[in-house]
Write a protein that binds this DNA or RNA. Structure first.
Lengths: 113, 113
DNA sequence: GCCGTACTACGAAAGCTATCGTACAAGGGT
DNA sequence: ACCCTTGTACGATAGCTTTCGTAGTACGGC
């Protein structure tokens, strides 16, 4: 019995630090993940098309989870991720929306198709 | 004539990237600087009591400047810094205020005197 | 029981960051 | 002219980050 039903460590709401959240959001790949989750709600790690390898993807999801930005649960072979919107909104009102909006605005400016 | 009247390079508004701004804000020392400037308006580098050495202070101010978060000008022997509020508000509406408010709220929660 | 899918763990490499001390430059006041 | 204050430049160091490949585990379906 080496394995319990596979759970993942998440920081408690009171342990979430603004610096860590901002740091988690300061990487382009992770910003993309967060914006995807903001739009889609919940999704598996593989549902997002990222320009990095599988192991790097795992790494970024972990950074987001350990900073308290997302919650992850196993469901079959998949691992579903979703934003911890309630916790983040309670701790840092408006931050998540502001960042997501800012990122989308920047995308719109930059892509200039 | 090796030295022009001492100017400093600032990124153009269009060059400011959200990732860089978030990264600049993800350090406790820099967050403290930004919140101080948000409260005081303009101030010299030495006016803030930071828990790091002089050279480290210089480093953090430079990171903030190069990310486009602050503007710095020489005035006599002092170097005055101020937030680039107009640029930031135009690019990422609400971000600065949200972060400053979030930091203050976190301080209030954490210090629990 | 076996295979495929989904994800993880580990180890490695390259690069960046935060920190410091020391030595130096620029400017203002006396 | 000299010094004091303010900030910079440089070099060093320790630690973190991003990235990858490879090998492995967990689960569901056949």
């Amino acid at each position: 019995m080496t394995s319990q039903p596979r759970t993942l460590d998440h920081p408690d709401r009171s342990e979430i630090r603004l610096e860590d959240v901002l740091h988690a959001l300061s990487d382009p790949v992770r910003l993309q993940i967060v914006c995807f989750l903001a739009a889609e709600g919940e999704s598996s790690c593989s549902a997002i098309d990222l320009a990095v390898s599988k192991s790097t993807t795992t790494h970024h999801f972990r950074v987001l989870r350990e900073a308290g930005v997302i919650r992850q649960v196993y469901r079959g072979t998949a691992k579903m991720s979703s934003l911890r919107r309630e916790d983040l909104d309670a701790l840092f009102p408006g931050l998540l929306d502001t960042v997501v909006t800012a990122h989308e605005a920047q995308q719109a400016r930059t892509v200039t198709v």
